[in-house]
Simulated assay, not measured.
Amino acid sequence: MANFSIRLQNCVVLVAAMPMTIERDLHMATGNGETSYTKNSRIQEKVMFQIKPVLEEATRAAYSALLPRTMVVADLGCSSGPNTLRFVSEVIGIIARHCKEHDRRHDYPQLQFFLNDLPGNDFNNLFLLIQQFNKSMARNHKGEAAEALPPCYISGLSGSFYTRIFPSESVHLFHSLFSVHWHSQASEQLKDTKNKCLDIYITKNMPPSMVKLFQQQFEKDFSLFLKLRYEELVSGGQMVLTFIGRKHEDVFTREPNHLHGLLAQSLKSLVDEGLVEKEKLESFYLPFYSPSVGEVEAILKQVGLFNMNHVKVFEINWDPYDDSESDDVHNSIGSGENVAKCLRAVMESLVASQFGEHILDKLFKEFAHCIAEHLENEKTKHVVLVLSIEKAIIHV
């Protein structure tokens, strides 16, 4: 019995020491609570509103190119909040409008939606939302003619989009919002590098060799992503991809870096208090990269499988509830709390896998304070890149 206890204790230690993996540990905060992604995804909602014209153009192009009887649409990195169903509703509306404008309202296509994310995604919550969505659609159009909207079918699909997830030439439209800038894996070279500055993302203090590892991982991952989607798209198929990115080619620009620098600052304060082990922070990096337009275009050109239809860059306030165009922050404390909640909904699974769940409340309270101090001096914005591309015809 004693030997069994020893082996069991050893097993527990091994499990606790498992390194972070993207497939297991990257997912938005689950459920419907105050810190959930469902309650803290207004930034994504605002971005979806901004990209509506791009999505409309790509959806119409994908449909009109082939007039499929069944149009297959996939949302990659869908998460589980209401924005996923907003995307579904938007595509349904676009197709309905297009068919009515071209006198095809009696000949709607069937719409098959696949909502894809990693296995840790809160699919249970997503399926409940789908059920509510279907009931809402039925209520809203009760008593209307059968051709009021095209029929739609919605399915969840678990798996990494850095693998093949669809049959060859089966998808007409791919969409991904704030997902493709995440790496396929945490860089082993970064984890093996002693991070004496305790930075978790790119800063001006970071050695160029380490910055290059972030860039190389993105180039490798995005190239793979494009090649996989090329195989899965039909001829004339479209993709709309939206990234957190940079306005400038300089990788050290503060736009995407400063918010994560404040998170690193908050983690350092917990190291000083003895709540976080310094060694754990030394080996922790955020597994994503915020690209510039030039970098995205260079990879597209190198891969050579897609034609660029549209690229757009715009900014959006850090605070998801600040809709003003002014440079003033009227309530820095409230804005700090809003921004911290938004980032917690995205980052807490990664933070918890490295440092433990017990630090989350303390960490993000400190983070909100750091953001508020920053916003008192400077109103800062996210930079968003939206890209619309079409599968190219390759002549062999």
Rank of each mutant, 00 (worst) to 15 (best):
C11N: 08
L270W: 00
E348N: 13
K52S: 15
C78M: 01
E144G: 04
Q9V: 07
V339S: 06
K312I: 04
S179K: 00
L111Y: 01
K204Y: 08
K391D: 04
M137V: 13
N83A: 01
F4D: 09
L259T: 14
Q9T: 05
V47W: 08
V13D: 12
Y201P: 10
S179Y: 08
E232Q: 09
I43L: 12
E56C: 09
G31S: 10
I154R: 02
H258T: 12
S155G: 07
N125S: 13
Y108N: 10
T30G: 12
H358I: 07
I244M: 13
K212D: 15
G77S: 04
Y108H: 15
S290L: 00
S36W: 11
S223M: 01
E390G: 07
Q189D: 15
L305W: 11
D328K: 08
E376N: 14
E295D: 07
S290Q: 04
H183Q: 08
T21S: 15
F178A: 05
N317M: 04
H98K: 04
K379A: 04
L300W: 07
Q238C: 06
Q238Y: 06
A298S: 15
A340S: 13
P208T: 06
R7E: 10
R69S: 09
T193A: 14
Q44A: 09
L115K: 04
L128Q: 13
S266H: 01
H172S: 04
N32G: 07
E90P: 01
G336H: 07
H260G: 01
E169V: 03
L275H: 08
S290W: 01
Q132R: 14
L149M: 13
T253F: 05
V386P: 06
D361R: 09
M137H: 11
G236V: 09
L213H: 06
L263R: 02
F288T: 03
K341F: 13
L173E: 02
V211T: 12
M20N: 11
G294D: 11
E348L: 04
A96D: 12
A148T: 13
